[in-house]
């Protein structure tokens, strides 16, 4: 009887303590902009899915190329068909971790500057990137933000010479995620 009681206590404790380590969002926000003298072209995606493990510092993102929305007419068509080839490579992913997660405790409320390193896969090409960001822990939710540049040449994105002056060589990317505890 005693053992059974202990077993139940452990199971409950086990779920409680481990359940809170993994955070998740399905509507994270990624914004990017291509800035040139000729034109600024930007896009938003509010359907970014991501996991964050606050003890191991592991982070993973996945996003569909087709769900980026543009304001500029015809930009979405060019982005999907010409540059990202979304029919062939429908998603972009990032797998990485927070460097030095041992030095911070994301269970405590506060704001923490972080460096995240990992593999960014676009158009089937994987590159290691290292970006800086900021994690803000509040009661019950975690906000992670980052801004970084992606050189389009890293991912073999070729721009036709006629419109070369309209597409930036470096794309500025802003990531803004609000994670909640993951409940399976």
């Amino acid at each position: 009887m005693n053992k059974l009681f202990a077993l139940i206590v452990f199971i409950i404790l086990g779920h409680f303590s481990f359940g809170q380590n993994v955070y998740f969002t399905r509507n994270g926000h990624i914004y990017f902009i291509s800035e040139t003298d000729a034109i600024d072209i930007d896009a938003n995606n509010n359907q970014v899915a991501s996991f964050l493990d606050i003890t191991s510092g592991k982070l993973q993102f996945a996003v569909l190329i087709k769900s980026f929305e543009f304001k500029l007419a015809t930009a979405k068509e060019h982005f999907n068909e010409s540059y990202m080839e979304s029919e062939k490579y429908p998603k972009a992913t990032f797998k990485g971790e927070i460097i030095g997660i041992g030095n911070i405790n994301l269970k405590n409320i506060g704001t923490y500057p972080v460096i995240v390193k990992g593999e960014l896969t676009l158009r089937g090409i994987t590159k290691i990137i290292e970006v800086s960001g900021e994690i803000t822990v509040t009661d019950g939710e975690i906000n992670a933000k980052s801004e970084f540049n992606i050189p389009i040449s890293d991912y073999n994105i070729s721009v036709p010479s006629l419109v070369e002056h309209r597409v930036a060589k470096q794309i500025i990317v802003k990531v803004d995620m609000i994670y909640l505890p993951y409940n399976k």
Binding site: A62, V63, K66, K76, N80, E81, T93
Partner: peptide, 15 residues
């Protein structure tokens, strides 16, 4: 799990 999430993304066909 992430692939499953992406499968439920709302996508309007364009072009």
């Amino acid at each position: 799990l992430l692939d499953k999430e992406l499968a439920s993304n709302k996508i309007i066909e364009t072009a």
